[in-house]
Design a binder for these strands. Structure first.
Lengths: 176, 176
DNA sequence: CGTCTTGGTTCGGTCAATGAACCATGAGGC
DNA sequence: GCCTCATGGTTCATTGACCGAACCAAGACG
């Protein structure tokens, strides 16, 4: 039985990469992992993905060593990006940049700030102030200026309504 | 009726980008367009994609202004990347880089050379000699060293068995 | 002991992908 | 003109992935 996800006969690293992360939802899960999302229910609530599909994708990503699954002391499973997963940041950023350039005009969107110098990330991934290309651990995602606080009720949307360092866990938000 | 390709409710440029180029085959078509593939039959032969799906994807990509369709004097349709499509190079490159880093060990793969200085492109997209990050128009794709000339019979594979500048049309290969 | 949360699995229905067959147009040979 | 082939599709039946809703098991909590 051949794998259903396979692009047959493509001796190409792009095809190989897309076999792993090219399925529906997969890169959005990775994006949320960069935001610090780690729990099944938070992925579920933020993405609106069917549970069965989320189970499948999390198993695939952990099986490929992109996410690491740890059962926390509380008994809840937690998922976090491995080094291999964090190497997907250029891909995630390039999609963000392209989507923002060609489809972001109708609505302003989140921006990314370089932790050290406070500069804003430009389309090419460089910090607008100091010119370096920061990795995800050096970035803070900022809400768009006129973000309505009531945009969405889920924990992740609430956590991202204030500046949030990438790769740091989504904190429990105190009831307002 | 909601669009089947939509990620509902995601106010995010990444989700927006994936709605357009996140479907199966789409980014491989874009990759081939960077290689200079322009004809329906060449995409078909190189990718092994079902005709109906290729029709659908080419219509989608031209509808979104990523590819431009021109009916050549010969009567054949030709597809080429627009400026918006060429802005997908960072995404394509990042996937190539990630796939090569984590899944390329079993088999060496194509490398990319910077036209000006001849340096080889590193994983971060920089030219190994001069340090700039070249765009696709400044790159040449090189076959892997021990490439068997008989690897695949289709025109595109043959054209890529010798060094080939990106974005230049796949030339007719003279019979050997 | 009953209820709630978490993290799933199962199931029927729907929709997209697949491969094979069919078709329309235009070019070239004769 | 007539036949044939290449190109660029469309149509169709089958398969498989995605979907939402329902169900389930284990642990926390009262």
């Amino acid at each position: 039985m051949t794998l259903p996800r396979e692009y047959l006969g493509q001796d190409c690293p792009i095809a190989r990469a897309l076999e792993i992360i090219g399925e529906r939802w997969t890169l959005l899960i990775v994006r949320d992992a960069f935001y610090g999302v780690s729990r099944f229910s938070d992925f579920r609530d933020h993405l609106g993905i069917p549970r069965a599909v989320l189970t499948d994708r999390l198993n695939l990503l952990t099986g490929q060593g992109i996410l690491a699954r740890v059962t926390a002391a509380s008994g809840r499973d937690e998922y976090s990006l491995t080094a291999k997963g964090r190497r997907l940041w250029p891909t995630v950023w390039s999609l963000n940049s392209w989507g923002n350039e060609f489809y972001g005009s109708d609505r302003p969107c989140r921006t990314y700030a370089h932790n050290g110098c406070g500069g804003t990330l430009a389309a090419d991934g460089r910090c607008g102030s100091c010119g370096v290309i920061p990795g995800p651990a050096e970035l803070t995602v900022l809400p768009w200026p006129d973000a309505p606080a009531t945009s969405k009720p889920d924990l992740v949307s609430q956590a991202l309504s204030v500046p949030h360092k990438l790769l740091t866990p989504i904190a429990e938000v105190a009831a307002s």
